[in-house]
């Protein structure tokens, strides 16, 4: 038997779902454990920064990094881990596309903190300080990054495995390939060429959408395409590695897998598709006001279309000079 592979898991700005997903593979975890030694896993062990620093270059065979690049510390860690790892896998949508936290990019770091700590909606409390002096000396906190960017903009990434979180079936397929030294960089990216629609079992018609409705206002037919029924479903613009898990149980796709392979900008693709078909019936008779009315039914387009992929999109973050 060949030597066991050394693997590590690291989480950046994350909800923890990705960590749980690793355990979600049920008994397969026994097979995995048989093949690997987990040498670094802050969530389960208690390693120190120094321990990582002490590692040899390329000591870790496969390093799984999840979560978003939300703090300076994340950047410092992933840069260090890159040195120590032969292969880095961006694990989960946050590290691949920026993830849900990426929507914070529509604001600035300062405003996020301001909103989080000073507005009336939250309890009064101390505003986080970068450093504070205590008896024992100076304590420092890592600073928030200006914007969230995909992991690959910080370090070289060998493989991408989006999903919020990646699902057991994805992992089942992924682990053997990722553990194989022969797998070329980028070769094993678990981003589908096709969208959620490809795997979605719902009955679809030619798209003729009058306007969008909030999901709570529609009695959804469980057999029929959700978007056809006038409820926003991101399925058409979202990579489909999920067996359409959400639409199948009657929940519209929220776009967690990010764009289909080789599509740069999930949000603009979806907006273009939707705007083209929505309210198209009888468009030649519609007044400009009526058209605007239809468009208003698409609430918060940026938030809806870029829910998981703003940092990997063309614009990436709120970057113009317009006041909020």
């Amino acid at each position: 038997m060949s030597e066991k592979k050394k693997i590590g898991f690291y989480w950046c700005g994350a909800c923890g779902g990705c960590q749980v997903s690793i355990l979600d593979i049920d008994e397969m975890i026994l097979d995995v454990v048989e093949q690997v030694d987990i040498v670094f896993w802050p969530c389960a062990m208690d390693p120190k920064y120094e321990d990582v620093e002490a590692m040899e270059e390329n000591e870790i065979d496969v390093m799984f990094i999840n979560g978003s690049m939300r703090m300076e510390e994340n950047i410092e860690m992933v840069e260090l881990l890159r040195e120590k790892a032969k292969k880095v896998v961006a694990y989960g949508s946050c590290s691949v596309n920026g993830g849900l936290f990426g929507l914070g990019n529509l604001s600035t770091k300062d405003r996020l903190l301001e909103k989080g700590y000073t507005t009336k909606t939250t309890d009064e409390g101390p505003f986080p300080q970068r450093s504070s002096s205590v008896k024992e000396g100076e304590l420092t906190l890592p600073e928030l990054t200006e914007h969230i960017v995909p992991l690959e903009e910080i370090i070289d990434v060998d493989h991408h495995l989006p999903g919020c979180p990646p699902l057991p079936n994805q992992l089942e397929e992924a682990f053997p390939a990722l553990l194989d030294d022969e797998t070329e960089v980028g070769k094993y990216d678990l981003v589908s060429d096709k969208s959620v629609c490809d795997v979605c079992p719902m009955e679809r018609e030619e798209k003729k959408i009058e306007k969008l409705n909030p999901i709570q206002n529609v009695y959804l037919d469980p057999e029929e395409c959700i978007l056809d029924q006038g409820v926003l479903c991101m399925g058409p613009a979202t990579a489909g590695m999920c067996d359409a898990a959400c639409p199948e149980v009657g929940h519209p796709c929220v776009g967690c897998n990010g764009p289909v392979k080789n599509v740069k900008d999930q949000g603009s693709r979806m907006s273009s598709a939707l705007a083209s078909v929505i309210g198209a019936e009888g468009e030649e008779k519609k007044t400009e006001e009526e058209v605007m009315e239809v468009m208003k039914s698409i609430r918060d387009p940026t938030g809806s279309f870029y829910m998981f992929s703003l940092p990997s999109s063309i614009m990436q973050f709120r970057r113009g000079d317009l006041d909020e």
């Binding site: 529509l106 949000g267 603009s268 907006s271 273009s272 939707l274 705007a275 083209s276 929505i278 309210g279 198209a280 468009e283 030649e284 400009e288 058209v291 605007m292 239809v294 468009m295 698409i298 387009p301 940026t302 938030g303 279309f305 614009m315 973050f317 709120r318 970057r319 113009g320 000079d321 317009l322 909020e324």
Partner: peptide, 19 residues
């Protein structure tokens, strides 16, 4: 007509992008 609707959506999104 498609362009008209797309432009409307783009404007909304640009606004969110600070443009």
């Amino acid at each position: 007509y498609k362009t008209m609707r797309k432009a409307e959506l783009m404007k909304k999104m640009l606004d969110d992008f600070g443009i």
